[in-house]
């Protein structure tokens, strides 16, 4: 994904880990073996609402603010694509 190749790899990795960590909480069931390549809707059956809850949970867990203005359906493709979106849309602390 060339448009995201400027994202800090360490930040992206942290985001992927945190998202995987939060999956059981938002899906309200056990989730094992999720990786950056896991598809959110197809493999995990995540609805768009649950996906959004995940983003807001991520804000709380990492104590950051994420701009949801440009968050689109494609960003919810995989754990990795969501991490890319978040990495590129962190708002500076107020």
């Amino acid at each position: 994904m060339p448009e995201h190749d400027t994202a800090d790899p360490a930040l992206r990795e942290q985001l992927v880990d945190t998202i995987c960590d939060l999956l059981p909480l938002v899906l309200k069931r056990e989730v094992t073996g999720a990786t950056a390549d896991t598809t959110l809707m197809e493999a995990l059956g995540m609805s768009s609402t649950t996906g959004l809850e995940l983003v807001l949970e991520l804000e709380e867990r990492l104590a950051v603010e994420i701009s949801v203005e440009d968050l689109g359906r494609d960003d919810f493709g995989t754990v990795g694509s969501l991490a890319d979106y978040v990495a590129g849309n962190l708002l500076p602390e107020a």
Partner: peptide
Amino acid sequence: PMQVKVFRRY
């Protein structure tokens, strides 16, 4: 509350 927050924020 999280679901309501989604409605408001997103």
